[in-house]
Computed example of a mutant assay.
Amino acid sequence: MRIPRIFSGQPLSELRDIELDEAASRHLVKVLRLGSGHPLTLFDGHGGEYSARLTTTGKRARVRIETFLAENRQSPLALSLAIGISRGERFDWVVQKATELGATVLQPLLTERCEVKLSGERLKKKRTHWRRIAISACEQCGRNLLPEIAEPVKLAHYLQNLTQKTAPAAKLVLHHRTRLDLHQWQAEHGKPDSALLLVGPEGGLSQVEIDTALARDFIPLRLGPRVMRTETAPIAALSVLQFQWGDL
């Protein structure tokens, strides 16, 4: 029997009854057609998950929270993805797949070749949209800690504010005209517990942006002989890093 996983924006605790929001209620009752008594798994994004049961169906379903399980399914590698914002649904795809692959921080960037303009109310709506995608991905993949989706900033500002204290152990920038052997890097530096991956938008990062990253101790990483699209490259790179240093 499938046990649906549902995110709740309200704090959760054992042995209490809560009312789900309309979206979650509609999914359980209208889409999945679940009845009273059906088991659920709830999580609030702060760590761990709760077993629960559906007690009342309707526009706002109610559930009974039962026991807590301290399980987060986090990778031992803390992965941050800083990536230029792409057009259309490409960036939505990146948010979804990066969440499934265990990225802990997603930093949208405004770069020289970025064609997306965000500000004010549009920016607020976009961040809300991306957060919903990340929540849905967590519900599907079993993560109980939501990734942080930072406010978009200019790449120069982002690099300038990366300090030695806050920067991950391994800082990598995708660059198809170079080559990096991760085995060699690990032999010299050891296996890192954190990594930052910097990726450009459509058209990639400019040479000036790459040079600026390299000047701040980023290491160029090449993903083979083929040039990948902006929505493919970060997913391939995150998979490689999780395989090499994480839990794949």
Rank of each mutant, 00 (worst) to 15 (best):
2 R>C: 02
3 I>K: 12
5 R>C: 05
9 G>C: 13
13 S>I: 06
16 R>H: 14
22 E>Y: 09
22 E>H: 11
30 K>L: 13
32 L>I: 14
35 G>R: 11
37 G>E: 13
37 G>N: 15
42 L>P: 13
42 L>V: 15
44 D>M: 10
44 D>V: 11
47 G>K: 07
48 G>V: 09
50 Y>N: 12
53 R>Q: 15
58 G>M: 15
60 R>E: 11
62 R>D: 11
67 T>K: 14
68 F>D: 09
69 L>S: 14
69 L>N: 15
71 E>P: 05
71 E>V: 13
75 S>V: 10
76 P>Q: 13
76 P>V: 07
79 L>H: 13
84 G>R: 01
85 I>T: 02
89 E>W: 05
93 W>D: 03
103 A>I: 04
104 T>L: 05
105 V>K: 10
106 L>I: 14
106 L>F: 11
107 Q>G: 08
108 P>V: 05
111 T>Q: 03
111 T>I: 01
113 R>T: 04
117 K>N: 07
118 L>M: 05
120 G>P: 10
123 L>Y: 08
123 L>A: 11
124 K>F: 02
125 K>L: 04
131 R>D: 10
131 R>E: 15
134 A>T: 14
139 E>M: 12
141 C>Y: 09
144 N>I: 06
152 P>Y: 09
154 K>D: 06
157 H>P: 00
158 Y>L: 03
159 L>Q: 00
160 Q>I: 00
163 T>N: 04
164 Q>T: 07
167 A>V: 02
168 P>E: 03
172 L>C: 03
174 L>E: 02
175 H>F: 07
177 R>S: 07
178 T>Y: 04
180 L>M: 09
180 L>G: 08
182 L>M: 07
184 Q>V: 09
187 A>L: 04
189 H>C: 01
199 V>K: 00
201 P>S: 06
204 G>M: 01
205 L>N: 03
209 E>M: 05
212 T>V: 07
212 T>P: 00
213 A>S: 06
214 L>V: 07
215 A>K: 06
218 F>G: 05
223 L>D: 06
224 G>M: 08
224 G>F: 03
226 R>S: 02
231 E>S: 06
232 T>R: 06
233 A>L: 07
239 S>C: 05
241 L>V: 05
242 Q>L: 02
243 F>K: 05
246 G>N: 08
